[in-house]
Each structure stands twice: as structure tokens, then as C-alpha cells.
């Protein structure tokens, strides 16, 4: 039999007061949201976490080629972009060159340009801006991991998967916090 709790209850008495029906309902909702969301977005969160760690350490893990030291050259004396693109294509195999250029990343301060191809391995060639000399060439593995991290690899709307995982994670954190606040409310 439950003892009646006086209206002017001490904090200790209030803590022993049985939770209201509304509180139990809300806690039950939080519990099941936590459970279902946790299972639903677990893989995405794990994938995003692992790719995030890999991206943080991409240089140490050798996931991107080293550009080396760029020679001094005035930015105003840079070669035109079509010429640099043609030079870059000359430093890779014909198959990679035929895949086309994905992007050209100009670094005026460093006097270099990074030409990235659209092949499956994502090859990148680094050239000096002023004379088109080869500074480095290699595979940009971090680019694929970046696409996996953002969800772009799953298609044009793939980023929505990342959004879904992020939203799920926020709700899981909120529901977990709620259950931490009210751990003794029975949910079953």
C-alpha cells in the first residue's frame, strides 16, 4: 500500500513520489525512440565516425599524395588553365586522362595547381603554376572517404542519409538524457 505524501513534501519525499502517468508515458516514448533510432542509424553513425577519423588523419595515413616543395613563381606568370590541364594529362596513363578532369585546385600562395581526374582511383597531379613542372602525382584516397562521409557516394541525394544519421543522433542523445533524468520511471 502506498503511503500518502503530504502536500508540503520534503525533497526526499518528493523523490520517492511515484511518477505520474504523463511522465511514464513520455519516458516510455523516449525509451522506444532511443531503442528504434539507435538500431536504425547505428550503421550510418559508425560509418560516419570511422570515415571522420580517417579524414582527420589523412596525411598521417598516406591517404593523399604529398605535393612536395613548390618552386618560387609569380602568380601573374602562371600558364593558362588549358595548358596546365594538357600538361597534367601527359603525366598520367591514357585511361586516366580519358576519364576527364574532375577539378583544378589552384593555390596561388604556394605557386601550384592540383589537377584531379575522374578515374575510379581519383588520381591527382600537382604542377607548378608558372612552368607546368610536375611536383607530385598520386591517388587521392581521402576524396572517396570524404564522399562516403558526406553521403555523396550514394548518389545526388545521398547527403540526406548523413542528415538522417545526424538527426537520429541528436534524438538519441536527447532521449538518452531524458532517461538519465528519470531512470526509475517504469517503461514496460
Amino acid at each position: 500500500m502506498n503511503k500518502a505524501i503530504p502536500a508540503q513534501a520534503t525533497p526526499a519525499q518528493a523523490a520517492r513520489r511515484p511518477p505520474s502517468r504523463a511522465l511514464r508515458t513520455l519516458t516510455r516514448w523516449m525509451f522506444y525512440s532511443h531503442l528504434w533510432l539507435g538500431v536504425s542509424v547505428a550503421f550510418l553513425v559508425i560509418l560516419i565516425s570511422i570515415t571522420g577519423v580517417l579524414l582527420n588523419h589523412k596525411r598521417g595515413l598516406g591517404l593523399m599524395p604529398d605535393a612536395g616543395a613548390a618552386p618560387a613563381g609569380a602568380f601573374a606568370a602562371s600558364l593558362p588553365l588549358p595548358v596546365l590541364a594538357s600538361r597534367a594529362a601527359g603525366f598520367v596513363t591514357p585511361e586516366i586522362a580519358a576519364s576527364g578532369i574532375d577539378r583544378m585546385d589552384v593555390r596561388p600562395g604556394k605557386g601550384l595547381i592540383k589537377v584531379r581526374f575522374k578515374d575510379s582511383r581519383i588520381t591527382e597531379v600537382t604542377l607548378a603554376l608558372h612552368d607546368g613542372a610536375l611536383l607530385g602525382s598520386g591517388v587521392r584516397s581521402d576524396s572517396f572517404i570524404e564522399q562516403l562521409h558526406s553521403g555523396d557516394v550514394f548518389g545526388d541525394s545521398g547527403y540526406l542519409l548523413s542528415d538522417l544519421a545526424a538527426l537520429g543522433l541528436i534524438l538519441i542523445a536527447f532521449s538518452g538524457f531524458w532517461m538519465w533524468l528519470y531512470p526509475h520511471s517504469r517503461v514496460r
Binding site: F43, I46, L47, I50, T51, L54, L63, S120, R121, I122, V139, S141, D142, F144, I145, Q147, L148, V153
Partner: peptide
């Protein structure tokens, strides 16, 4: 399957193309 997908998708880190 989680282990398989994580490993296969990340090692080696290259795009999923028809060739793969």
C-alpha cells in the same frame, strides 16, 4: 554484414565503379 560493408567500402578507398 556490417563488418563486411565497412571493410569492403573502405579498403581500398576507391570509388565504386562498374569495373569494381
Amino acid at each position: 554484414s556490417l563488418l563486411v560493408v565497412l571493410l569492403v567500402s573502405l579498403v581500398p578507398p576507391v570509388m565504386w565503379m562498374p569495373a569494381t
